[in-house]
């Protein structure tokens, strides 16, 4: 994965410091800004792949930074960090053009998963999903375990792609049904189980484990916290 550059705008020093270290540990390049003004200035001249933006900043608040950014026509993915979780706050942030929203304090794996999802959405050109030894090339429609090609049916492919795009998140059976069926067709949960168990069998030897969450769905878990 290429070294994405993330702008981190946060005025709490302990949080900025910790996040910078964790993000660098996860192979991101991080630029930290302690105020809205500084971030706003940097965003006008420098290139970033993602903006991690705190709302409660001392001078220019995060929502102002965001609206200035969008008014300049930027499509930079923005993940808001906030201490407030009123529905109205959330709606305001998303209305101003934020792509996602995370309430403090957050679990680091959750933050990383959201960052990766946003980057993937914006860099679909790269088109490669990687999970341990498993690699999926979405453009070439080919998958490998290590160096060995992995053969998948169209439906198996769709299931695995969905799981890989949501590492550490449960993909519900209902989501899979909606993914696999056109509007006219119907699919039972039993059929979903069949597809998943087929994919699971193909991944088992490589040590990639699809976890079943009883009554809910399936999940690929990252073994590392970061």
């Amino acid at each position: 994965m290429k070294n994405f550059r993330i702008a981190l705008v946060e005025d709490d020093q302990a949080l900025t410091d910790g996040l910078s270290r964790l993000l660098r540990g996860a192979q991101f390049r991080v630029e930290g800004y302690g105020s809205g003004q500084a971030a706003d200035a940097a965003l006008q001249h420098e290139h970033f792949d993602l903006l991690l933006l705190d709302i409660g900043l001392p001078d220019l608040n995060g929502l102002d930074v965001l609206s200035r950014l969008r008014s300049r026509g930027s499509t930079l993915p923005v993940l808001l960090l906030t201490a407030r979780d009123e529905v109205s706050d959330r709606v305001r942030g998303l209305d101003l053009g934020a792509d996602d929203y995370l309430v403090k304090p957050f679990a680091i794996p959750e933050l990383l998963a959201r960052i990766r999802a946003l980057l993937r959405r914006n860099h679909n050109l790269a088109g490669r999903l990687v999970h341990g030894p498993l690699i999926m090339d979405l453009n070439a429609q080919r998958a490998w375990i290590g160096d060995a090609p992995l053969e998948l049916s169209a439906r198996e492919w769709a299931v695995l792609e969905q799981l890989l795009k949501n590492v550490d998140k449960v993909v519900s059976k209902q989501q899979i049904v909606e993914l696999l069926t056109k509007s006219d067709a119907t699919l039972s949960f039993n059929a979903v189980e069949v597809y998943v168990s087929r994919v699971r069998a193909k991944l088992e030897e490589a040590g990639v484990n699809i976890r079943t969450v009883r009554g809910f769905g399936y999940m690929l878990q990252s073994t590392l916290a970061a």
């Binding site: 949080l15 964790l22 409660g56 403090k104």
Partner: peptide, 13 residues
């Protein structure tokens, strides 16, 4: 919440 987030993040580090 913000100082807590700092604390938790540093612990993750």
């Amino acid at each position: 919440r913000t100082p807590l987030a700092g604390l938790m993040t540093q612990l993750s580090v």
